[in-house]
């Protein structure tokens, strides 16, 4: 949902908070607009006029807070704000994080405020807009370089001490634990999880992973990348995890044939990454992380449906997103059993 919904909090409280946080004499906020996307978080865009202080003048801002129900593995907003600050300082192209607020008296729940970047993040638009097509290989290469910068943030970091250090084995066990709670058997996912367990790659030193690094989570203003968004899943992990996630078929939108997020061949994305990082990507490791990505995406889709089935959130989109898990299951079969694929027009 985007556009006309009214925020469930007072603009006066927000203006007072911004005044204090920025050291302004006063702040006047315009109407808040619920921005598109944000199934797990709500993003409210607004304009504000600051008189004095660190942001003196007119500003276009975004307030980011929680949706009514979330999914279990996402960070809280204050933690996400700390991650955003860390990657902003590392030179990653992200909306500048400005202020965070834990006090529930302000809008009723924790939130943070960042600058609003322009452009679109809509995957279907990005993968189909004819005006963008000549530029998308360059965007993919840029994403490779951006990912390298994300990976310059290394543990341990006192400001990111909340980020989990879950091992790969523990995360895979978490997939199993979810399936144990799920009311339907998912044999394809069971097989995929078994494959992961029996094909664990040699570990590499951990880096910061975005864990939702994909088309749909970066903004393009024309051909220019203006911001990598949605850091709520970030954690320490394997440097190839985000590579596999971007290439996962679930994020190719209208262009399943373009492996790098539906925008380019994977070679374009790899070139940006390898040039900037000096590390060559190993196709087998990336394949492991693509299998992992498909299982994870399937489970996230099922968890989203749980927000309706268990959490009671009356939302049609959430109610049937669980059916998309089957798309990931098809991709798992294609990755793990390519010889088993039926010929075209097979009558299953």
């Amino acid at each position: 949902m985007a556009g006309t919904a009214s925020p469930p909090f007072s603009r006066d409280g927000l203006a007072r908070f911004l005044t204090e946080a920025s050291g302004a004499a006063s702040v006047e906020t315009g109407a808040l607009e619920l921005l598109a996307g944000g199934a797990i978080q709500h993003n409210w865009g607004f304009e504000a006029a600051f008189r004095g202080g660190s942001l003196s003048g007119p500003q276009r801002l975004v307030l980011r807070t929680d949706a009514p129900t979330g999914i279990p593995t996402s960070l809280g907003r204050i933690e996400e704000f700390a991650v955003l600050r860390a990657v902003f300082a590392a030179g990653v192209t992200v909306p500048e994080p400005l202020f965070a607020c834990l006090d529930p008296a302000v809008i009723g729940q924790p939130f943070f405020v960042m600058r609003r970047v322009s452009g679109t993040a809509q995957g279907r638009v990005i993968t189909t807009d004819p005006a963008l097509q000549p530029h998308l290989r360059r965007v993919a290469e840029r994403l490779g370089r951006e990912l390298t910068r994300i990976q310059t943030v290394l543990p341990p970091r006192s400001d990111l001490g909340f980020l989990g250090n879950e091992t790969l084995a523990e995360r895979i066990a978490g997939f199993r634990a979810y399936l144990d709670r799920h009311p339907r058997s998912r044999p394809v996912l069971e097989w995929g999880i078994r494959w992961l367990e029996t094909h664990l790659p040699e570990p590499l030193p951990p880096v910061l992973c975005h864990r939702d690094f994909r088309t749909g989570n970066y903004m393009l203003d024309g051909p220019e990348l203006t911001g990598i968004l949605d850091w709520e899943f970030a954690g320490w992990g394997d440097p190839d995890e985000d590579v596999g996630w971007l290439c996962c078929k679930g994020w190719r939108f209208a262009r399943l044939d373009r492996a790098a997020g539906g925008i380019a061949d994977r070679a374009d994305f790899y070139r940006g990454y390898e040039t900037e990082s000096g590390r060559r990507l190993d196709p087998e490791r990336v394949r492991f992380w693509e299998v992992f990505a498909n299982i994870r995406w399937a489970i996230i889709a099922l968890q989203q449906s749980d927000r309706y089935l268990v959490g009671g959130e009356k939302n049609l989109s959430l109610a049937f997103i669980g059916r998309r898990a089957t798309e990931s299951e098809l991709e798992l079969l294609m990755l793990l059993d390519p010889e088993g694929a039926p010929p075209d027009r097979c009558h299953a």
């Binding site: 044999p187 394809v188 097989w191 399943l256 059916r323 998309r324 089957t326 798309e327 299951e329 098809l330 079969l333 294609m334 059993d337 088993g340 694929a341 039926p342 075209d344 027009r345 097979c346 009558h347 299953a348």
Partner: peptide
């Protein structure tokens, strides 16, 4: 594996046959 393929294809024929077609798997 044959059971898995058959089940997944049958489910996608109901929920997203366009996705199947885009993956080179035609209609029943």
């Amino acid at each position: 594996r044959a059971i898995l393929w058959r089940m997944v294809i049958a489910k996608l024929r109901e929920t997203n046959p366009q996705f199947l077609a885009a993956n080179g798997i035609g209609p029943a």
